[in-house]
Amino acid sequence: MDKAMSNKGVIMLYIFPALFLLLALIYIPIVQTGYFGLMKWNGMGSKEFIGLTNYSRLVQDSLFWSSAYHSFLLALFSVLSLVGYLMISVVLAGKIKGADILRKIYLIPMLLASVAIAQLWMKIYHPTNGILNSMLMSIGIEEPPMWLADPNLALFAIFIPIIWQYAGFYILIYYAALKNIPESLIEAARIDGATAWDIAWKIKIPLIMNVIKVTIVLAVVGSLKYFDLIYIMTNGGPNGASEVMASYMYGHAFRGFDFGYASAIGFFLLVICLVITWIIRKATAVKEEIQY
């Protein structure tokens, strides 16, 4: 039996097609991105090797850093909102009637296409006929904000639908983790006189710390590479006010046809995501294995 299950040819046959796609369409491209970053290239003609010029331009590009700042702002915002999701999930995973229906309702926006979400929220934010300003005007606010057209508000106005989109996803993850905690543990604590607050803070949350760590990584990395709603709703505007790293890269590549520089940005984005993942995992590494 061992012989049959270690047949090299069969293993190759089962692994190869998927591995080939993975290497050809994900791993080789990220190496190429770093390499193309060393080129002056408009996407069609020949490439000219210019060394680290693109990368040093990137370091001095204040527009890039402002887009990076926006991406990090989104990451911060997303991580802070995790606290809210965690609270909702703790409540939801208590003995709440209808918890199952509620968490499914929360999840619906996550299943929709970004294009649909973006178009819908553009209508919500519509200065005169959108539901938001209709409501504001009906309660007596005469000149409600322009939202997506206002440079001070555009970025934050997009954060709201991003939160809307992902809230259910994180609540679902926390809910599943909390439901995994053995009931006997909670019961024992309750008999020992722990309050609901104590049980949540001192038992439930520490027990799902590993899941919380994973969600922090997901939220931060997901934010740093975030693109869809920003590209569709404002395309980084007005005047760069909502530009993020991915939209900045995309603009340079497919509007500016500066493939060399865009590749440098794309490579930098990759490095940031991997480094940040590593840092978060180091920083939140559990010193001792929790036993319970």
Partner: peptide
């Protein structure tokens, strides 16, 4: 099945989750 590099291959697939699509788009 039993083979030496199985955990490496699994690792390659899992790391693939962390890679931003924008870093692969131009190539």
């Amino acid at each position: 099945m039993k083979w030496r590099l199985s955990s490496l291959v699994l690792g390659l697939f899992m790391v693939g989750l962390m890679i931003p699509i924008h870093s692969t788009l131009i190539p």
